[in-house]
Nucleic acid binder design. Structure first.
Lengths: 258, 258
DNA sequence: GCCATAGCTTGACGCATGTCAACGCCGGCC
DNA sequence: GGCCGGCGTTGACATGCGTCAAGCTATGGC
């Protein structure tokens, strides 16, 4: 699929490309193309050489890692997210697999063009460095979340952040199937059920995909959310400045499963 | 402490600075300075604004994360390693604490100078992006190691990689106290003891800090080392090319503790 | 309306790991 | 020499989590 003017505008407005020169942007997009994938399609297998930077424009994709017949979910991405930037920059093999959870449309940007652009356009490569920094810090948060909190605490924090994303209403709806949520939070579906059951003591009521936090104070006291672990979205519509750019870089949701 | 010619040469030869223009390098080092810290010194506290890029030239430093009175070790660094590059690039607060485990000498490079250099010198900011990519992939490996392997398996793989680093001899010596090693591997000291005990069935003999792997085939069959998780050092002395640059970026050792 | 299937939940069980306490070893210090 | 404190090990115990099995509900096809 060729790119349309509308797509180009959308890409151009991403933090990663906003500062690039027109020339750089032109060279980058000249060799790029859009591709549509069905649900469950494998985009990348662990160990494969990575030839493209992927930019998820629509749909959902899961990043995973495997070893010895075990699999773990490293992240679940929603639009607009770039992924495997690090592998592209280093021209290295993929450390994670990628597959679509829903039908998705993805922009594919040849790696060689991206590396060439980064080597010549300092503002673009600075943007690349900022994007990578955001991803790195996302992983640091993930590890801290994973190692320092128990299952119920991870779930509680997830619910609080979801609530914030959806406008802070008392009742909101889970964006994924519970099986996917469990993987995201680093537990089995069975344990997610139990974790929800435990949280009922804290005013959490679950009705299918609908969740209501009946006692915000109580659940917050359990969750103890921290800006050093959880990425908080600004509640009002204020424009984010440079320092907050890392807040919502490429991958908003990052958790691991055992 | 001012920088000496010898220090400058050493810095200049790091991958991060090797491609920078002389002008960039001069501007960067003009405002840099060396500092010596005693063992146990706190370099950075979680949440602090980060004003410098740190480059560990001698000694050992530990990176940690905390939440709710619990602490976890995110990495143990040895020379020559840079750290908190991502926070510097984004001019953001530190997500991890840093403290010296031994007396250390550290080069401190003002963040503003680094960001300015990255915005103007494309080859330097490309090197920054490559360094960050290596760090990012290191964290991905850490998470996979942590979530996919059990304690004994993590230890087995650590021993194999240590053995390789030390020339592949049957007997080698642990580079850290066992308490630090336990933190590195994401377990308690008690469990590290038990893990060592379990590995005796696989030909692993421990004598204080000396470890000998009596049955390499057996321990390898348990460890199942993978290039997608473990960073293998080249056994021979071949010069590493661009693709392998990520192999030994800033932080070689990254594990987390619960 | 009936059945099949998938997603979710619940219970029972076992394993891995954290916690707490006691002990031995060793090195430093008085 | 004797005391002391840090490190490492070992055991008993509790807990969190994964695994397996069964059942429950909703949805879709016939």
């Amino acid at each position: 699929m060729p790119l349309r003017a509308h797509d180009l505008e959308q890409i151009r407005s991403l933090p990663l490309f906003a500062d690039a020169s027109d020339e750089t942007f032109g060279q980058l997009t000249a060799s790029a193309f859009l591709q549509r994938f069905r649900a469950g399609a494998t985009l990348l297998t662990e160990g494969d050489p990575v030839d493209f930077l992927y930019i998820l424009l629509d749909g959902i994709v899961e990043l995973s890692g495997t070893w010895n017949d075990k699999e773990t979910t490293l992240a679940v991405l929603r639009p607009v997210s770039t992924f495997i930037l690090a592998a592209v920059i280093l021209d290295a093999d993929a450390l994670m697999g990628a597959e679509t959870l829903e039908a998705s449309t993805i922009l594919m940007l040849p790696g060689e063009a991206l590396r060439r652009a980064a080597r010549t356009d300092p503002l673009f490569s600075m943007a690349v460095a900022q994007e990578l920094s955001g991803c790195y810090r996302g992983l640091v948060r993930t590890i801290k979340n994973q190692k320092l909190r128990g299952g119920a605490e991870r779930l509680a924090n997830y619910l609080l952040s979801q609530q914030a994303h959806q406008g802070g209403r008392e009742t909101f709806t889970l964006p994924h199937e519970k099986r996917v949520l469990a993987a995201l939070l680093g537990m089995t579906p069975e344990n997610l059920s139990r974790a929800f059951a435990n949280l009922s003591d804290y005013g959490v009521v679950v009705n299918g995909p609908a969740v209501t936090l009946g006692r915000p104070g109580l659940i917050r006291r359990l969750a103890k959310p921290s800006p050093l672990i959880d990425n908080h979205m600004p509640l009002d519509g204020t424009v984010v400045g440079k320092a907050e750019r890392e807040l919502w870089p490429t991958a908003q949701l990052m958790r691991a499963r055992g």
